[in-house]
Amino acid sequence: MLITCPYCGPRDVSEFAYQGDGNRTRPDPASTDSEAWNAYVYDRLNPAGIHNEIWQHAGGCRVHLAVVRDTLTHEISSVRFAREHGTPTHSRRNHGAKA
């Protein structure tokens, strides 16, 4: 399997570290919704087919990538920066109360 890192070009899968399901939403850090936290920490989409995933180019530039990949064929249809296209993110503002 080859993953085309937007920085480094096509590289062998052995250079990348898998970071799992890219469809998870991290609850607001201050949230006490235990169901939402449980879903985020423990539940995964696990489709047989197209899957949104997070990979890290660990043996290269170390950037995280939002990869769209077919789990039946291993074909990759899209590779983008995770920071722009990955899991919904949280800004500093909604990070919650601070000391």
């Binding site: 890290q56 660990a58 993110t89 500093r92």
Partner: peptide, 15 residues
Amino acid sequence: MQHLEYFLDVVWPDL
């Protein structure tokens, strides 16, 4: 290192 990078790059890219 990987743990920190993940949060910085994926969860809190605005930091």
